[in-house]
Nucleic acid binder design. Structure first.
Lengths: 219, 219
DNA sequence: TGCCATAGTAAGTAATCACTTACTTTGTAC
DNA sequence: GTACAAAGTAAGTGATTACTTACTATGGCA
């Protein structure tokens, strides 16, 4: 039905359209989603969408922008990193948090991936907000541990990427590629095991041989 | 120009269309690619496409199928695993191989991701061919090392996923999310560092505490 | 209560989509 | 050389797309 909606304030309608659009874009991508579909699911006439957003693409970027601005996430990670717990607890909780948040709602991940694949020009900002910032905070923590000579001397950014890679790749395989249809994993066990591997791998040990410098070149 | 092509054998034309379609699907996804675009770039009339593939979707699955059948990859990994080199060399070369092959031609990765995102129903087969088989071979090697008591007792599949996750996530960030625009990495250094971390993390050590069993539940 | 800015709608538009039909050209076997 | 199966083309089809236009309904304020 096209008129299940009553007259509501402009800002509210705008937000509602964005919510609906976000869900659809995340599920089907930009090209795969039609404005009619968005209108139907929002319960408004298609023309209303174009009153708020002149072109379909404007709606898309508005959705991306709003996702970029809802921070919330980085602070949680930063808080975990500055707690007094030991590294095992800290890293395992970060891993578990990533897994939990993404399995509960994969909208953000899907939107991020679709944007990266479909649109080459503006996905960078999205990437910087959601990926770069996140693992720069992690890299700072790792850098501190290296200075304390508790971690080995490796590029902190690469090490952070390695940790997040183990966790996020697992989520991708399970949730996006359908890995969960073949094998189920306990979230806590996954977090613990991956953290154990990475943490022991990062540990500075007397006998551990390592090339003089494992850092990457910056430009 | 619509008639730059001369008359060629049916099978050859079919293959040519598939090559062109593959490149476009990988770049723009299924929804983002039009049959007209494919025809133009193949230099043939649009109707020819439908002579070979009744529906656009048939062409898509033909492309996916052909990618699935060009094996080549798994054997290379298996060969590396059965060489007489030590683990450091083996794993680093696997990592480097993954990074090299994907940065040189990201078609397969993009196709894989697009399929996983756009199409829920048949990406599983694609996934099994290109992801599952690959890391099951790796898991078998890890399982052997665990039996030799050289690796810690963790779920081999999860450990394999951890290793591939570190490497593949790095590629995703660099190549798909535009990470390379901010920072360049040396491929060999990346492979060595990530391998070092993972390998030391997997090493069975006398003093290393570990929960009695880190395995996941199967169903 | 009546005004009026604006939220909302019906019914379009041209363009583009996947796909078809009716027809022409071409290599090859005899 | 000609017959003919198959490769190729031009010009469509109706459906769907993003987007517009001309109009009506409604809530808040004087």
């Amino acid at each position: 039905m096209a008129h299940t909606s009553s007259r509501i304030a402009s800002a509210d309608r705008r937000q509602q359209i964005m919510r609906v659009a976000m869900a659809l874009f995340a599920l089907q991508g930009f090209e795969g989603t039609t404005t009619r579909q968005i209108a139907e699911r929002a319960g408004v006439n298609e023309a209303i969408i174009f009153r708020h957003f002149p072109r379909k693409e404007d709606l898309y970027w508005a959705v991306i922008d709003s996702k970029c601005q809802t921070a919330g996430k980085r602070e949680k990670l930063a808080a975990a990193l500055h707690s007094s717990e030991n590294d095992r607890v800290i890293f395992a909780s970060i891993a578990e948090d990533i897994l939990r948040r993404n399995t509960e709602d994969s909208t953000l991940s899907r939107l991020l991936l679709f944007t990266a694949l479909e649109n080459h020009r503006l996905s960078h900002r999205f990437f910087r907000t959601y990926v770069a910032e996140n693992y720069e905070a992690l890299a700072a923590h790792i850098r501190r541990r290296i200075q304390e000579k508790r971690f080995r001397r490796v590029d902190p950014l690469l090490a952070a990427r390695g940790f997040l890679g183990m966790v996020i790749y697992h989520f991708l395989i399970q949730e996006l590629f359908g890995g969960k249809h073949y094998q189920k994993f306990d979230r806590k066990q996954v977090s613990d095991v991956l953290t154990d591997i990475w943490l022991q791998g990062m540990q500075a040990r007397a006998g551990a041989p390592l090339k003089p410098d494992g850092r990457a070149k910056r430009r």
